[in-house]
Amino acid sequence: MAVTLAEEIMLLSLDDESGSAKQRQAAGWAVAGGILLELVLAGRVAVRGKHLELVDATPTGDPLLDGRTALIARWLGARGRRRVTDWLTKDQAKAVSATLERLCARGVVVEERRMALGMFPIRRYPEAVGVVERELRDRLRGVVLAGAEPDTRTAGLIGLIHATKLHRLAFPEGPARQIASRMEEVATGQWAAESVRSALRDMQAAMAAVTLITVVTAAG
């Protein structure tokens, strides 16, 4: 199966040389959101308003997605639906670890472990295969900078990046306002079925809410 939206966001977050994650907390929200949107596109979950529902537990064949589907099923239990923000808050950190593990399994990055000051374990994930990220960045540049029409998954990815304000991970250089404006245009465009676009809008609202809570808590 192709690299997932969550894995693409993780690749944008990882420094190519050091393998350390940039803007890790915000990227974590986007990674968790990327898994959810991927499951929406696959018809496994639905995001309606503030709530998440399981639609179909049939395996997709991708370990990352199928693992999350099973976790969501257990988390929902007999309730049938729960708040999207609650799931994102619960899954944010774990989603990052699961996504990194999947990238390692694919051979796209490698895990390096060392001790800082002889006491603190540190993990880094430098790239092993750079072509995946290069193709990803080329695709994003084509849509955002060159005005190409996005396919469904690329538009969804751009919507997630825009919602979590990770523009600089995708475009370290370039006109910030123009990039943000184009991302907003893509995120709100007619690039997929209304049910998918509605799910992304609801997820963007949820991620904006949890991101704001994180910022306020950190400031306090």
Rank of each mutant, 00 (worst) to 15 (best):
S181F: 02
S181Q: 09
R182C: 02
R182Q: 08
R182Y: 03
R182K: 10
R182N: 02
M183C: 08
M183G: 08
M183F: 06
M183Q: 03
M183H: 06
E184K: 08
E185K: 00
E185G: 01
E185S: 07
E185F: 00
V186S: 05
V186K: 01
A187C: 07
T188G: 11
T188Q: 13
T188A: 13
T188K: 12
G189A: 12
G189H: 01
G189M: 01
G189F: 00
G189K: 00
Q190R: 09
Q190Y: 02
Q190V: 01
Q190I: 01
Q190N: 12
W191F: 13
W191N: 05
W191H: 08
A192Y: 05
A192I: 05
A192V: 05
A192R: 06
A193E: 14
A193D: 11
A193Y: 05
A193I: 02
E194N: 08
E194Y: 08
E194P: 03
V196M: 01
V196H: 03
R197P: 03
R197N: 04
S198A: 13
S198W: 04
S198Q: 11
S198C: 07
S198G: 14
A199C: 06
A199R: 05
L200T: 07
R201H: 13
D202H: 12
D202I: 01
D202P: 00
D202C: 06
D202R: 01
D202A: 11
D202E: 09
D202K: 03
D202S: 09
M203P: 04
M203I: 15
M203D: 07
M203E: 09
M203W: 02
M203T: 11
Q204Y: 04
A205W: 07
A205M: 09
A205Y: 04
A205E: 10
A205V: 10
A206Q: 06
A206D: 07
A206H: 02
A206C: 09
M207R: 12
M207Q: 12
M207N: 07
M207E: 08
A208M: 13
A208Y: 13
A208Q: 13
A209M: 10
A209S: 12
A209E: 15
V210A: 13
V210F: 12
V210P: 11
V210N: 12
T211F: 14
T211D: 15
T211V: 14
T211M: 15
L212R: 15
L212M: 14
L212W: 10
I213W: 14
I213R: 15
